[in-house]
Amino acid sequence: MIATTGLAAAVLLSVAGCGKSLKDLEGRDSPRTPTASAASGGAPEAGRTGGTSGNVPSVPSVPTLPTPTRNPTGPAPSVPPSAPVDGRDAIAVSKAAATTMWTVDTGVDTSLRDATLRAAPYLDPAYLADQQAGTPISAPGAEWLTWAEHRAVTRVVATLADDMGKPDDTPVKAWHAWSLRVTPSGPDGWQGTPVTVVVFVSLARSGPDQPWKVVEAADSRP
């Protein structure tokens, strides 16, 4: 198991939200993961968990959302199953994790945190435990509320974005970035505006012959 450092939320926010690259993640173990868009107040990624450092401000009440139809810890019925992933391929693992984290069914999910938990097969056990035990860092934003109103499901198209800059991979550490085009649509025929998100992923493994696991993921809006 890879140790979790519990890096302060503000540090990761600056990585994901201020134009920095994957090079800024080099040398870290597996800090907890706030999402950069949470600082903007209107992003749908509210509910994914962050670190425990700093004070979490109180949030205003939000409109009542449709009640999810089932327990979100299992596979969401409208989310297609993931294709087999080669655990020895860091690019494949990082893509699968990033895509899963943004593939949601708002008829089931209460936040992106539920999608993050579905990415469990790709996550380091310590990082997964951190996500399971963490506290949401903000209330749902306007986009998520709109998606939930239409019981939307998202379709994600991922494009490798390593040209943003990254350190060289080692036999036991790797860094990759993905540009995601997230398109929400509802069963009522509603088509939402596509969202572009960049996900910075840090991976590690215990040895050259072991599978890669995600130890950190941070979202950023271009």
Rank of each mutant, 00 (worst) to 15 (best):
S40Q: 12
A158S: 15
A148S: 11
V214H: 10
A96H: 04
Q132D: 05
A174G: 07
L145D: 06
D168M: 07
G54C: 06
K173S: 15
D163L: 11
T67F: 04
V214Q: 07
K173F: 05
A174Y: 03
G42T: 04
I2H: 15
N55K: 10
S53I: 02
G192M: 06
P140Q: 06
A115F: 03
M101K: 01
P34G: 13
S220C: 02
S58V: 13
Y127D: 02
A3C: 08
R70Q: 14
R28L: 13
A98E: 03
D24C: 06
S138Q: 08
I2V: 15
M101G: 04
N55C: 12
V214A: 07
R28H: 12
R205M: 11
V15R: 03
D109V: 04
L123Y: 14
T33P: 01
T183D: 10
H176D: 00
P63Q: 02
G107A: 12
L117Y: 02
V62C: 04
S40A: 09
V104G: 03
T5P: 01
S185E: 07
S53R: 05
A36V: 08
R48F: 03
E143T: 15
P167L: 05
P81Y: 00
L13Q: 10
V214R: 04
T73D: 09
P66N: 09
A43W: 12
P84I: 15
P208M: 11
P84S: 15
S202H: 08
D105E: 03
S202W: 05
L117E: 01
R48W: 11
V59A: 15
A96C: 15
N71P: 00
P184T: 14
G6I: 05
I91W: 11
A142T: 15
S40V: 07
G74A: 08
P136S: 08
V156K: 11
L180V: 03
S40M: 12
D114Y: 01
T135C: 04
S30G: 14
S58W: 13
G51W: 08
T135N: 12
M164C: 02
P75F: 03
A115G: 03
Y127H: 14
P121C: 10
T154N: 01
M101R: 13
A129E: 14
N71Q: 10
A16E: 08
P222F: 05
T5C: 13
V153P: 00
R88E: 14
I137L: 10
G41F: 03
T154G: 13
W190E: 09
P211L: 11
G51H: 06
I91H: 15
A10E: 06
A43S: 14
E143N: 07
T170I: 05
L128R: 04
T103S: 12
T170K: 02
S61G: 04
A161K: 00
R32V: 02
L203C: 12
A120M: 06
V172S: 01
M164D: 12
I91P: 00
A39F: 04
R70G: 03
S94Y: 12
T196R: 04
S202M: 14
D29H: 05
V182G: 00
D219F: 10
T67I: 08
